[in-house]
Structures are given as C-alpha cells and as structure tokens.
Amino acid sequence: MGVASSIRFAAALAAVAVLVAGCGGGGGTASGPGARTTIANIGSDTMLNLAAAWAEAYDRVDPSVSVEVSGGGSGQGAAALINGSCDVANCSRKLEEREAGEIRSRRSREPKEHIVGYDALSIFVHRSNPLEEISVEDLGEMYRDGGTITRWSQIGVTIPGAKGDAIILVNRQNSSGTYHYFKEAVVGKKNEFRLSALHMNGSKDAVELIANTPNSIGYSGMGYATPEVRQVRVSRKRGERGIAPCAVSALDGSYPIARPMFMYTAGEPEGALRAYLEWILSPKGQEIVESTGYVPRPAR
C-alpha cells in the first residue's frame, strides 16, 4: 500500500516537474519535455517492486517515455485493463476467461499475454522456527478448511520461546493473485481456505507479520524475503526431498510452487508500449528481474 502510494506520489511529482518545464520552455523547443508519452501500468502487488524497478531504469533508456506504476492486486490490474484506465496490466496469474471476455466485449480487442519472468512462492516462518522443510500435502492440511494440522507439535516442531503451540496461518486478501495461485497449487481447487487465517493486505504486510509472530507460517513471492524471516524447503509429498526456492529449481519445475508472471495488453502493443515490452524481454530488462529477486525467462 505504502509503496504504491509513494510511487504514485513520485509519478505525480514528475508530472508536475514536466508541466513546469513545459511552461518555462516557451515556444523555442516544441518537441521538449511536453511531448512525453505516458504508459500506465497497474496490477499485481507481487510484481510491484519489479515493475517499479523497470519503470525507473527505463527512464534512462528512453527519457521521452514515463511509466507510471501502481499496485492493488492482479484483479485490479485486469479491471483497469477492462475499463481502459491502464495500458499494461501486471498479473501474477493467468487472465480469467471472464476477464478476457470483458476485454473483448468492452475494448473490442484481443487480450495479449506476455510472460515477463517467473516467481517462486516462498514459504516463510519466523527466524526462531527450526522447521527445515515441509511438504505441499502438509501445507494443504494446514490451510484447508477442515484440515487436520493445527498445532506445530503435529509435524514435530517445537519453537523455542513461542507462546503456545497453535499454528498462526498467514494468508492474503482474497483479491490477490498470489492467494488464488496458492489455493490452486496447495489447498486444491475443490477445497476452501481455513477462514480463521490472518488475511493480510499485501505481500510486505504478510512478511512483516511473520517477522514478529514466532508461531506463524505464511507465503509470499521469493523476492519479499527479509533477514527477519526464514524460507523453508518445499517438497511435493511427505517423505520426498525438499527443494529450496531459487531460479534453477523454479525454472526446471522441481520447486512445486513456482509460476510465471504476466503482463497483459489489450490488443497487439504499438509504439512506445511495444518498445517498452521489448526492452523488458531483452537481456537488460531481464537482468532487473534477477536483481529484484525473481527468476528471469530462460535465454533463447
């Protein structure tokens, strides 16, 4: 939330600066800063850090284009693309059939999908938690409504200095793309989440909460890891070897909870937008994916 608004604020400042410069320039430089094109980029909170880093770096690549980034969730990005208030939507999940249909009917254009990188969902626990690895099955039993695991002792974990034995589940708000992906990959499509989990509004808030709650467990994009929380290795089934979340394991598919990150445009991108997306997929753009903690696309 805070990041989104500060980025918006920075964008507003930049806009004011452009206006002022434009006014002061007089008639001399017609193609001056007033001719700046703006790309509105809205969507996934998971991709917010990355999208902001791209926007900032692109300012040096092509100063005539300004990219304005804001978050709010994949659903918000899709909604903005449907009603035409953004040029590119960031989605940490695939566009739903319903959303694609609305883009077709309201914008009369075919939604175009661009895979811009990969994200591995890390399972985070408090730094004092000795848990080394966990299976997707056990995670499902924790998060599923009516699941059997509610106490740490059930999976043989004692957290030093913890108050009680209860597992404090940290979940995300139900509009988040990460929430829906986690439900699909871990809880199962037919099941529901346990409602008594703590629903945090944003990846950062979720990690912050885990950092100061010893009994908690939660999930967020790999890029949100901080020294205050520990990442746990994840296996598909009980008894299998746990895999650490990293670029290699996310790409070769051995890490069980990794997913592609998408950018959607309404129709084939043109002009400045096309150049921006091409730059994102170029080695320079993909370097930024790696430096912000995500997994770049495999080199072709």
């Binding site: 913890a162 108050k163 009680g164 404090i168 703590l198 100061n212 709650t213 010893p214 009994n215």
Partner: peptide
C-alpha cells in the same frame, strides 16, 4: 502484545 501478554498472535 506477544511478549507482554504471552499470546501467540499480536495483531
């Protein structure tokens, strides 16, 4: 709250 009241969750 976690340390002061010995509860598992502070929010």
């Amino acid at each position: 709250l976690i340390h002061g009241f010995h509860v598992p969750v502070g929010v």
